[in-house]
Amino acid sequence: MNAMNFVYGFLVLVAVFIFQTTLTGINRKVTARLQKRYGARWYQQFLDIFKAMRKDSTSHGWVFDFGVIMALGGIMATVIFIPVAGFEAFPGLDNVFVISYLLAVGMLGMAMSAAGSGNPWASIGVARALTNMLAYDIPLMIVIFTMIFAFDSASVGELAAMQQGMGVLGWNAVRMPLGGIVAVIALLGMLGKKPFDSFIAPAEIASGPMVEYGGKHLGFMFILHEFMTFIEVSLILNLFFGGGATIWEYMLKYAVLYTFTTIISGVMPRFKIDQAVKYFYRVPLAMAVVQGLVVIFTGLGVKIWF
């Protein structure tokens, strides 16, 4: 680990921000076309973020400010550890557990900051966000543990590399079809896409945790959201869809997966939070458990595969 690693890390952050923000803009256009309208410009998301950064903003005490910084720091640190098409800024540290714990720092920062605003809608939103996290995490973690057990590795980069070379048949989503479905459903929950977006629902709790953010704070939250999206989609992409052998393949797959979630969310209303939890603990959890049993006891899809 030397100075170059940190330079790489910084470059990764810049590249990820530009890529993900562009993609978000394009996805806004996709949603617009779904709704039979023209839609915003593709670079609208950049304008929005820079506009928000330009504005004045209101602070609600040091917890509110510090939470934003803590969340952004935690999330940016996590982004650096995500392996992209075999490239890692800090090689050897791309463990699933490292990523999920670092992600939790960011989440906690957000929760702390939102609760620090003192707005009741924000508290309700945070409570819902954490409940939602609990809901999608359990099925997803069962599937990921199964995978770690089957492949004897917890490194995201290694798990991605193992799936390459067999084409589509090598993907874990094909080897473990039920697990793949669980992963995509959990991805919807992670990204806060409908039907699992009750924690930021504008029409119910006035955009939940974001309710008191404005100006620069909101700009930071937007940047944070872009990074978070990258982490979540990348995790699922690396673990279940084989990552990418080249950077172009990775970007293409990433765009397809992300746009897919956008399209799903375009024709979905949202669940209430209790319904979302019930849903995750019913269908995806059952699927995850079945998948785990199949892989552990029969080896179908891992040891027995073409």
């Binding site: 806004r28 915003a40 974001m210 008191e212």
Partner: peptide, 13 residues
């Protein structure tokens, strides 16, 4: 939204 305008939920935003 063509003009970059959109509704926002709270006055802060």
């Amino acid at each position: 939204e063509r003009l970059g305008m959109g509704p926002m939920a709270t006055p802060r935003q």
